[in-house]
């Protein structure tokens, strides 16, 4: 297992990710999560044109404070870490993963781009309604034995598997 390897065992990666709960709990007083950072960033941007958004309690709670900006920094760090890892292994990636043309049955870039936007919207609308995503509910909530997280994760896989029936296999 070297830094220049193209792939590591999923078990090594899973342990590394799980270990991040230690600094999250001890230093930041929270569990690992990523999806509320989208509220912090979109709320901050929206407040430039619509200062009234800060009157919404839910948004206001996400605008300031160490915890919110810690999570924004974490997701930016994810991009940095993935960038470094891919450079170390020389794994180059094109504009769009080749699996999409197979799964969608079309190589149209416009179709994929439209779907990417719509899926991103669903992803965060769902994560905010449920109050967490694969990290917050999945990795952190299940590790805290939270009932809400068991339900959300079960529905997440159910929703994902139903939609996957409409995609082609590759």
């Amino acid at each position: 297992m070297k830094l220049s390897d193209k792939s590591w065992s999923p078990y090594v990666a899973g342990v590394l990710i799980g270990l991040l709960q230690i600094p999250a709990f001890l230093l930041i007083n929270t569990a690992l999560g990523t999806s509320s950072s989208y509220v912090t960033v979109s709320g901050t941007l929206a407040s430039i044109v619509d200062p009234g958004i800060a009157q919404i309690d839910y948004v206001a709670k996400h605008l300031s404070g160490a915890k919110n900006w810690w999570q924004v920094a974490t997701v930016i760090g994810i991009a940095i870490g993935a960038f470094i890892s891919s450079r170390l292994s020389g794994t180059s990636r094109g504009a769009v993963s080749p699996v999409w043309s197979k799964a969608l049955g079309t190589s149209s870039l416009a179709v994929r781009m439209l779907l990417a936007f719509v899926s991103g919207f669903l992803l965060l609308l769902g994560a905010r309604v449920a109050d967490g995503c694969t990290s917050g509910h999945g990795i952190s909530g299940m590790a805290q034995l939270a009932i809400s997280s068991f339900i959300t994760v079960a529905c997440m896989f159910a929703g994902g598997m139903i939609v996957a029936l409409f995609l082609r296999k590759f």
């Binding site: 995503c133 997440m156 994902g160 598997m161």
Partner: peptide
């Protein structure tokens, strides 16, 4: 929320 999140994933 879980269903929407899963569909999005």
């Amino acid at each position: 929320g879980g269903l929407l999140l899963g569909a999005g994933i």
